[in-house]
């Protein structure tokens, strides 16, 4: 667990460093994700200790999201005044995006057969 965590945090910090040094318009952790992806491709596999650590982290993902999501506390008044517009936009764009990718994938996978 600890060894895998060390590897992940090293990649996270390397990502933060790279994003800051080259002033990339990318969040540091996403930059770290790309670094790890390149590393895995070059290495040709995932070491079991890294896999174990990441599976344990994924199990607690909703909990790690609590601190930031609780920030909606300060937006309650605002959300209660425009929930209808926001809900409508979210629902409509969910349907449109779903149908777009559904039909595009149907079309492209038919062509390949």
């Amino acid at each position: 667990m600890l060894m895998g965590l060390i590897v992940l945090v090293v990649f996270q910090l390397a990502g933060e460093w790279l994003a800051s040094y080259f002033s990339l318009p990318l969040p540091g952790p996403v930059c770290g994700l790309f670094l790890l992806l390149v590393f895995l491709i070059l290495r040709g596999g995932v070491d079991s200790f890294v896999l174990n650590a990441s599976n344990k982290l994924f199990a607690y993902l909703p909990m790690l999201l609590i601190p930031i999501t609780a920030g909606i506390y300060s937006w309650f008044n605002f959300l209660s005044s425009s929930w209808l517009e926001i809900g409508g936009v979210l629902l409509l764009s969910f349907f449109i995006t779903y149908l777009f990718s559904f039909f595009m994938m149907t079309l492209l996978s038919a062509r390949q057969r």
Binding site: P29, L33, L51, S54, F58, L64, I66, P67, I68, S74
Partner: peptide, 29 residues
């Protein structure tokens, strides 16, 4: 206050970045 709550649990928020990095693994596989 939310601010002081967030300050006390900031380490959990940093670990969220670690999970983001770990997303490379399912993507690779």
């Amino acid at each position: 206050s939310y601010r002081s709550y967030f300050d006390s649990v900031e380490v959990l928020h940093w670990l969220l970045g670690t999970v983001t990095v770990a997303l490379a693994i399912p993507l690779y596989e």
